[in-house]
Amino acid sequence: MQIDVLIDVKTTLGEGPLWDVQEQRLYWIDSVDGRVFRATADGSEIRAWQVPQKIGSMALRKNGGAIVALARGVHFLDLNTGDVELINDPEPNLKNNRLNDGKVDASGRFLFGSMDTLEDGPNGALYRLDADLTVHKLQDGIVVSNGPCWSPDGKTFYFSDTWSGEIWAYDYDVEMGSISNRRVFAVLQGENFRSSDGSTVDEEGGLWNAQVYEGKLVRYAPDGTIDRAIPMPVKNVTSVMFGGENLDTLFVTSMARPPLSRFPTDSVQGGSVFKITGLGVRGLPEHRFAG
């Protein structure tokens, strides 16, 4: 196994790595500075788009372009012009919230969550955006929504509230896009923080989680037991995604500056995108939004 800095861009809050198998390109975001980035697997041909608000996550669309979960609603993003268009703001009256992490299921629906910007109140929720652009609330009472992903067969949905100290599993109805039977999949272990951030699932069903402020990645076996833990060169790792030609490179985002003063600062490599090779496992292609 080898860990390298792929791109040293010093994102204030790097997040949401997304590998697109069609373009063979890596996307990621800077949540605080409101930017979307794209590069090749070797870190070249970097391009950036500025969006008008803080951004929590993004997904590509089947018909071209992207959708982005900005602070105040889900928007279309035209990757040719950079223009954004509001689809739906599910929380128009919750001014201290913003939208956060999100991913697309096997049927092309976008599941995304919101978060309390002070990270101390259960004011967030989990939502589903369907192809017809309707939004449906799936769960509320969340402080910071994070880590949505699915088992390889799509029948188990994983999700976390960063400050719960747990990763949850749900039964997922692939046809309806509904969740049920929430249970604890894994309990985090940390010296100072038990904080779950972005996750992805590999082809063997292992769940990889970035444990922000603890500086490590953890792979959980399908039964929730710890399979391996990887210490990173920075404390503030934020999310993970497999990519590259063979889907066997793990891309890892990080932050240069934590959002609140109570969180730890980091080394000069904070904010970089890292790549990890030689893990011996492959990821799964990400789906595109059907709307």
Rank of each mutant, 00 (worst) to 15 (best):
D227G: 15
G278T: 00
D202I: 06
G121F: 13
L217H: 00
L6F: 12
A169Y: 01
E85K: 15
W49F: 11
L94P: 00
D42I: 13
E45F: 07
A186C: 02
R219G: 05
L260D: 11
V104D: 02
E85S: 14
Q50Y: 08
K137T: 13
S180V: 09
K235R: 15
I67F: 04
D223A: 12
K54P: 02
S31V: 08
D223M: 08
G244Q: 06
L94Q: 12
G215E: 08
I87K: 06
S31E: 07
F263I: 03
A48C: 15
E175Q: 13
W19T: 01
F159G: 03
N146R: 05
N146K: 08
R257M: 12
P92D: 02
A169R: 06
S145T: 06
D227F: 10
F289P: 00
L129V: 04
R98L: 06
E15H: 02
V212H: 05
A69D: 01
A66K: 07
F112E: 00
V74M: 09
T249P: 05
L126A: 03
S239D: 10
A186V: 03
E45D: 15
V240M: 04
A39D: 09
V84M: 08
A59Q: 09
I230P: 05
G147F: 02
D130N: 15
R35G: 07
G141K: 14
L99D: 05
I3Q: 06
A125R: 03
F157S: 01
P285Y: 02
F263L: 15
M255A: 13
V174P: 01
S178P: 02
R25L: 14
L279N: 00
G270M: 03
L126I: 04
E15L: 01
T134I: 08
S151R: 02
C149I: 11
L26T: 07
L79R: 10
Q22A: 14
Q2I: 14
S254F: 04
K275A: 13
A106T: 12
V74T: 09
L279Q: 01
G73K: 05
F251S: 04
D223P: 04
G244W: 05
W168A: 12
P231Y: 09
R61H: 10
Y158I: 03
P233H: 06
C149G: 14
E203L: 14
T117C: 05
L126Y: 03
G65N: 01
G102Y: 00
I179V: 13
L26S: 09
V281P: 08
D8C: 06
M115L: 14
V68G: 01
I226M: 13
G206V: 07
G16T: 13
S145A: 12
G121R: 15
D202M: 03
R219C: 10
E214V: 05
A41Y: 08
G244Y: 06
L260A: 12
P17A: 11
P148G: 07
R109N: 08
L188Y: 06
G283H: 00
Y172R: 02
R47M: 13
E91R: 02
P258W: 07
E286G: 03
S164Y: 10
D197Q: 05
Y213D: 04
L129E: 02
L86T: 10
N146S: 07
T81Y: 10
L13K: 06
K54N: 09
A169C: 03
V5C: 11
V84G: 00
I46R: 11
G283A: 05
S31Y: 03
K54Q: 15
S160Q: 12
S44M: 15
F76A: 10
G82W: 10
